[in-house]
Design a protein around this nucleic acid. Sequence first.
DNA 1: CTCCATCGTTCAATCGATTGACTGCTGAAG
DNA 2: CTTCAGCAGTCAATCGATTGAACGATGGAG
Lengths: 336, 336
Amino acid sequence: MIRNSKRPTMADVAAKAGVDRAVVSRVLNEDATLKIREATRARVMAAVAELGYQPNAIARSLRTARTSTFGLVIPDFANPIWAKIVTAIEEEADHHDLLLVTGSARPGSGRAEQFLGLLQAGRIDGLLVAAPVAATLLPPPAERLPWLSLNQRIPGHDRYVLFDDPAAVALAVDHLVALGHRDIAHIAGPDTLDSARRRLAGFKDAMSSRRLTPCAIVSGSYTTDGGEQAMRELLAQPNRPSAVVVANVASAAGALNGARAAGVQVPREISVIAIHDLPLAHCFEPPLTTVRMPLAELGREALRSLMNTTPEQDVTAVISEPIEIIARASTAPPRT
Amino acid sequence: MIRNSKRPTMADVAAKAGVDRAVVSRVLNEDATLKIREATRARVMAAVAELGYQPNAIARSLRTARTSTFGLVIPDFANPIWAKIVTAIEEEADHHDLLLVTGSARPGSGRAEQFLGLLQAGRIDGLLVAAPVAATLLPPPAERLPWLSLNQRIPGHDRYVLFDDPAAVALAVDHLVALGHRDIAHIAGPDTLDSARRRLAGFKDAMSSRRLTPCAIVSGSYTTDGGEQAMRELLAQPNRPSAVVVANVASAAGALNGARAAGVQVPREISVIAIHDLPLAHCFEPPLTTVRMPLAELGREALRSLMNTTPEQDVTAVISEPIEIIARASTAPPRT
DNA sequence: CTCCATCGTTCAATCGATTGACTGCTGAAG
DNA sequence: CTTCAGCAGTCAATCGATTGAACGATGGAG
């Protein structure tokens, strides 16, 4: 790739305006300590405009050791949940005149570690990590870098922002209990993921604190296929549940398919509710009842925490407002 | 934000190894012109390891004027179509030891222009733009920068990679004609978008070359609501179509909802086919028949073109392989 | 008439790595 | 004994912007 090397530098501007490079720099950065004649400032600005001068951000970053850019790593662009969070963080970044750059990192892809590399190399000022990171590839804890994790706790790194998953699951259970359900099952996510474990634990707690025993707990591995398989298992059981709390939307979509394939009507024979809402959820058949999580709030809070803390400080925020039931047509009172 | 200033530099490594900084640089970059004793190289490597030295990418970039990082701007993370393309480009970038950073830019957000700023500022080596860019904010054509656009042509910028939309639409029409349809309508996208215009033009061409006249053409504005509204209009017409080609999946989801709301059965009374496939399309009711587009191929080709051309060269690629019908349950022969 | 403060700028070191040119040394050829 | 070729590194300029310190000119106070 051939670079256009004729881009003007600050020296060119200075020469054209007949001043020192320092003046150009100070004018452009609106340095308050600079005393300057209006005429000179105007000459500088004119030279800048005429040459179409654009400061070289690399050089500036080398000097200032800041880039005004933050990174974000999510597990997968295909999951619309993350889309909403990314967008919220981008908007928050806009407000602070920062730029957000995003990447995805399937487990084992090493991309999360590449972004940590950007951070170590000084090419971004901070990093938000929502993707699984190989513990072995983490920077040594001694090296405190400005990053924190989203929606997951990483051993040895007490800097994270989480959803209040237990509260969300409790809300789902309440919704079902209010409809009259008592035989409630859970389709969980993979127990390698912190969020899935939190939701599972939340389900158990919510049930026991309401003096109910879980009808069944099966894994849906957070995927559509996994959810379909899980629903099949539940329907094959002798004590079939009358309602299911599904740990995420992809699994729930699969669960609906599984029920349909088995000729079981939702919600007449079994109710389904999922954690996380999705714009397309109302296009499912039946439209899916969900628990909407505070996606934008999580994103905003994460960026703010990252900006306002040093790497030495702990960040252990839990976002619980607003969490609400989006009641659609996949939940109903149980058959009597 | 407080930066960890005690990160070791090349000078530290050089001091520890008892050599010149130049040696460290050459060892690390495997400079073939460097003659060096094995013992010295080992000392350098040992010093690097012991200090945990990590080269400062900013400084390197300042010197070399390259960053090994490319940018990508998409219109919206929430659209799963882009998710697939982003992922493909990330993988292609991996193969070339490059990093891809992505951002989204709703029209008018100015984010696309920010990424062009990254390019001008030398913080990325190239840029792929899939989002609408305000023509007024484009760098002057005189300033040839290494960027190209995806899935859209921008006036005055003959560097783009497109889907073969006419071929896709023709395939959809063929599918319907083969089923026996003749009264075919089109739910188009917003005519501000190049892709929507290409699909519309493709529809007209495909119909006329098969000696059919479009039953109707209405705008669905690429949104779920727009698609629902459009379907309502079509069903209200005196000459109701027996099949509809919908320009994207979001509109198609809306169209299905619209038909259901009007009590019209899909596909018994009206067939629906959409451009672009989606993993969740089989969760719709009925599962949606689609035309799968070569998403990954477009992404890969775009990155390769960007890497292998200078900003002065034109790039006008059209990706037409593989485009295929994914037949699900939303299309069927017309009622007789 | 001298001294000092202020104004409006300039000087030059610095950030950390890269790279073309150069040097001191050893050993072998002549 | 000289000379020259390689070896093993070293020197120092450079990328482009930032920033604390310094500097000459001007004007006012004493």
